[in-house]
């Protein structure tokens, strides 16, 4: 299992899967995402089952504001693109490009999270507390879990960026960045369903 790296040839075109360790990380993370899918499905199902149970509290069409959600969606979609661009930079051994695009991703993610906190704050002051109704609990749990994923992703990517601020692209950190970007895309995938199922269906469905 001795991974011998030929340094003279240059960075392989798929640095994230150039070592066995990288291949393992790559596959293991996809397996994890498969599990995440069905975990989120459970929360989506819970929300769909309980969304009409407002128990005299505010209903979804009372409180949701589409413009805010639209801005949040655009920010998160764009952050998905920037992490794709970071991966392109990584494959070309462009370390500076990787760093810049990843930092942009982190900034976009942070602004998304900020807007989400603001949104929850607004809803709370409108009268939708966590314990107001089954609808409220399932809404905050589903969207909050997504927010927690964003938060975790931000912490993760920031840790990587600081740890490897001047390390260059190596066969050890390339899989780490690649996996983190997969995670970030997955957060975006979940958000696509949240804005559709929770917000759009809540307002107009």
């Amino acid at each position: 299992m001795a991974d011998s790296v030929d340094m003279t040839k240059g960075l392989p075109s798929h640095p994230e899967r150039a070592t066995l360790d990288g291949k393992n990380k790559f596959l293991g993370f996809w397996v994890f995402l498969g599990g995440e899918t069905i975990m989120f499905a459970t929360f989506f199902g819970t929300y769909l089952g309980l969304m009409s149970g407002t128990a005299d509290g505010p209903t979804s069409s009372d409180i949701f504001s589409l413009p805010l959600v639209f801005i949040m969606t655009m920010i998160l979609l764009t952050s998905s693109l920037t992490s794709v661009l970071a991966m392109f930079a990584m494959k070309k051994n462009n370390f500076k490009g990787l760093m810049v695009w990843m930092w942009v991703t982190v900034l976009l993610g942070a602004s998304f999270l900020g807007l989400e906190i603001y949104e929850f704050y607004e809803y709370y002051h409108y009268g939708l507390g966590y314990t107001t109704s089954a609808f409220a609990s399932s809404f905050y749990t589903l969207v909050g879990l997504h927010g927690a994923h964003v938060l975790f992703g931000l912490g993760w990517i920031t840790t990587l960026l600081i740890r490897y601020r001047s390390a260059g692209i190596t066969l050890t950190n390339a899989p780490k960045f690649y996996v983190a970007s997969l995670y970030w895309h997955f957060i975006d995938v979940i958000w696509v369903f949240i804005f559709t199922v929770v917000y759009l269906m809540g307002v107009g469905g």
Partner: peptide, 27 residues
């Protein structure tokens, strides 16, 4: 993973007052 989700719901219900399983609150 669904078990983790279900246990999280039960924990939120028991410790943080979530209304998933309380019929009186439309759970």
């Amino acid at each position: 993973t669904p078990l983790a989700a279900g246990l999280a719901l039960l924990m939120l219900d028991r410790i943080f007052g979530g209304q998933f399983f309380i019929p009186g609150m439309d759970g």
